[in-house]
């Protein structure tokens, strides 16, 4: 019963979300809802408005009109409150190179208001798929895949209800990329709403529940991933953009 309630809850909503830079319209009347536990992938060329959408939800970009809403709270009106539910994983998760994985996680968790023991922190890193031997190594020596895992661990430790991902798997080797997808699925099963901007059509088809295609600031198409094969999706994408 409660599971049903969670699934129906809209965690992320964009209402006529628009962002203009002078004459240029980066995002045009975007309307989008993402439920708890849902993974939504945004496809589109560079400059299609994917990152702008994510930045609006993060509060880093103020929309020209419309609203970005997280867990029923408007981002522009109460940025601080919405941050409590958010976690963000950029193309490369940048961390403090002179600190270890655990120290980085501890620092960022403390800022979010959580205090964990070393064991708990280590547990989060393991859950995010980071091998135990790397936990107390300096992040400066981490590969990109390992950094992304710390990013996931930060999200888990924060108990984030919404995950915003900006091309998180670009540049990852297939194995790391696959691991990453598995973790995302797991998080989604636990009720996390995930918005992911990506160029990886096959990854999107595999991991996402719904897929949106953006072109010049417009969301031109939204497809249920069960209704389409990867090849069909690719053809559709090429037609659209």
């Amino acid at each position: 019963m409660s599971k049903l309630f969670i699934v129906n809850k809209y965690m992320l909503t964009a209402k006529n979300l628009t962002k203009k830079y002078g004459e240029h319209i980066a995002l045009h009347n975007l309307n989008l809802t993402i439920e708890a536990g849902e993974i939504f992938a945004l496809l589109g060329q560079n400059g299609a408005g994917k990152t702008t959408t994510i930045n609006c939800f993060l509060g880093f970009v103020e929309p020209s009109s419309g609203q970005a809403i997280i867990n029923d709270i408007s981002v522009t009106q109460n940025t601080a409150e919405t941050k409590k539910y958010l976690a963000y994983i950029p193309e490369t998760v940048m961390l403090y190179g002179n600190l270890t994985g655990i120290e980085n996680l501890e620092f960022f968790s403390q800022l979010a208001g959580f205090r964990y023991s070393k064991e708990e922190l280590s547990g989060f890193l393991s859950k995010a798929g980071l091998q135990t031997t790397a936990h107390s190594q300096r992040v400066g020596g981490y590969s990109k895949g390992m950094r992304q895992k710390v990013g996931i661990a930060i999200a888990i430790a924060k108990k984030a209800k919404v995950l915003l991902l900006d091309e998180p798997t670009s540049g990852l080797d297939p194995k790391a990329s696959n691991e990453f997808s598995e973790i995302l699925k797991e998080l989604s099963q636990q009720g996390t709403a995930i918005l992911m901007a990506t160029h990886d059509i096959f990854r999107a088809k595999e991991v996402a529940h719904r897929i949106g295609i953006m072109k010049q600031g417009h969301l031109v198409s939204v497809i249920d991933s069960r209704d389409i094969s990867a090849t069909e999706l690719e053809q559709l994408y090429l037609q659209m953009v």
Binding site: L58, K83, P90, M94, L95, F108, A112
Partner: peptide
């Protein structure tokens, strides 16, 4: 410049 700022701010600090 190195991008940690966005993660910092996403953790809810003003």
């Amino acid at each position: 410049e190195n991008g940690t700022l966005r993660i910092l701010l996403t953790q809810g600090i003003s």
